[in-house]
Simulated scan of single mutants.
Amino acid sequence: MEWMNISYVLAFLAVFVASVSQILLKQSAEIEHKNILFKFLNWRVILGYGLLFGTTVINVFAYRGVELKVTPMIESTGIIWVTILAVFFLGERPTKRGLLSIAVTVLGIIVFSL
């Protein structure tokens, strides 16, 4: 596989991992904790921030082969991933505003990729 193709895969992977991290942090925020120490030192928060750090490392390698003009399109897919993951893991129903943001994101990706 060519380096440029690997870079794009890494960029999309970083966005997906960051979305998973956001879901973990939201799960932790919705849980009642014993005290303030447990609010910040539980496995969801530690794993969530660890994943965010991991996305930084992945992006360092990904952006070596990804054109900077396409990075906003790749990063905007995070809106789609967070909505999908929230439905499956948090049991949330997407709001009209959330569905509208997904539609605008997809439309923007299509228009700007032409």
Rank of each mutant, 00 (worst) to 15 (best):
M73E: 01
N5L: 15
F88C: 08
L90Q: 13
M73F: 04
G98M: 01
R93L: 13
V57W: 10
Y8I: 08
W43Y: 14
T55P: 03
Q22K: 07
L25N: 02
F16N: 05
K26F: 06
L13A: 13
V9I: 15
I84R: 02
L100T: 15
V17C: 12
T95I: 12
V60P: 00
G78Y: 01
R64N: 14
I80H: 02
I23S: 06
F89M: 13
S28M: 03
S28V: 00
V70P: 04
W3K: 14
R97T: 13
I46A: 09
T105N: 09
L25E: 03
I58R: 04
A103R: 09
G78C: 05
V70W: 03
V45F: 03
G48I: 02
I109T: 03
F61T: 01
F53E: 06
F112D: 07
I110L: 14
L107S: 15
S21V: 05
W3Y: 13
V15H: 00
L37C: 07
G91P: 03
M1C: 10
L47R: 01
I23F: 07
W43K: 11
G50E: 09
V45P: 02
V111L: 15
I23P: 00
G65D: 03
F16V: 11
L85T: 09
A18S: 12
